[in-house]
Write a protein that binds this DNA or RNA. Sequence first.
DNA 1: GATTGTATCTACATACATGTAGGTAGATAT
DNA 2: ATATCTACCTACATGTATGTAGATACAATC
Lengths: 177, 177
Amino acid sequence: MSDTRTRILDLANQLTQSKGFNGFSYLDLAAEIGIKNSSIHYHFKAKADLALAMVERHRETTTKQFAQLDHGVESPQARLSSVIRYFEADLRDGKICLCGMMAAEFQSISEEVRRELALYFRGFQDWLSKQFSEMGHANPPQSALQFLSALEGSLLLARIQGDVSVVSQALDGFVNG
Amino acid sequence: MSDTRTRILDLANQLTQSKGFNGFSYLDLAAEIGIKNSSIHYHFKAKADLALAMVERHRETTTKQFAQLDHGVESPQARLSSVIRYFEADLRDGKICLCGMMAAEFQSISEEVRRELALYFRGFQDWLSKQFSEMGHANPPQSALQFLSALEGSLLLARIQGDVSVVSQALDGFVNG
DNA sequence: GATTGTATCTACATACATGTAGGTAGATAT
DNA sequence: ATATCTACCTACATGTATGTAGATACAATC
């Protein structure tokens, strides 16, 4: 386990969230980390390999975080609020959802990464669905899809409008209503 | 007014919707249109100029289309349905909202284009707000923001899931409910 | 008829992105 | 001690993106 590999993944993740996966190069990663770009190639032979590793890792991390929320937070409303605050925090650094960003870059990513993204969103929707089910919603999967859509869209809008509160304006109805 | 200029704008618009503004080059435009890339530079000195012209034109077009809907379609519900069908049609060609795509590319676009995008979304929200006002919603601007967020997000999700119906699942509640 | 403007071209300059080839220095295993 | 592995390096090859300089052909204006 090289620490460098983790640093590459961390940095690539941050840069993808702010500038998109096509918005940075191996040279950028190398310069920031303080090694040569060929060393990035040592860890991730091609940039497509980095994309896949990054999205896979993010999906695992997210799955664990959902499990932690299920154990540590009692009400589904409080869990949803917690998720919203998580994305708002990234947004304050100009970062949107990693997978939302890569979904916009759909056309330039590999079939494998597309599958991973679809699985991420599927997992997210399933988790949301359980929350809305607990909250007694009539159609939990649909509520989940509405929440997820509104989340991804509001992140884009909020960044353009320079107003983080757009996210809660778009989503608070799901937590209270 | 050269027809070439319009063809460049049309093609750039389509490519931005499917691959993003950073997803194509002047060489791509030139090859498709059948001229040399320096001729593209003749019409739009730098790519940033093309971006600005494209977004300005799109904002004007959209404003006119909203006015046409206001005149030609009687109920606000039918107008919203019409807007949804418009985006679904593009989505079937792998194209999402031009400004949603460019919002994802926020970090690499000029301050001027950012302002244009903010104006586009502001105009869109204001128009939606009028529709929800006519429909008797308690908080029209918030309904408008929720609709717009859900629209932009659902386009991303639908393309990744390969399922156009995601859009109507996310938005039908606004038209009926 | 001479000048200017429009729309295109050829040719080139610069920079950068992606990736390969092959080498090195230190740690680990046999 | 030798061989192999890990993590990095230098150097380079190739392709592409953006953009500039200057020429050309043709139409419109003066």
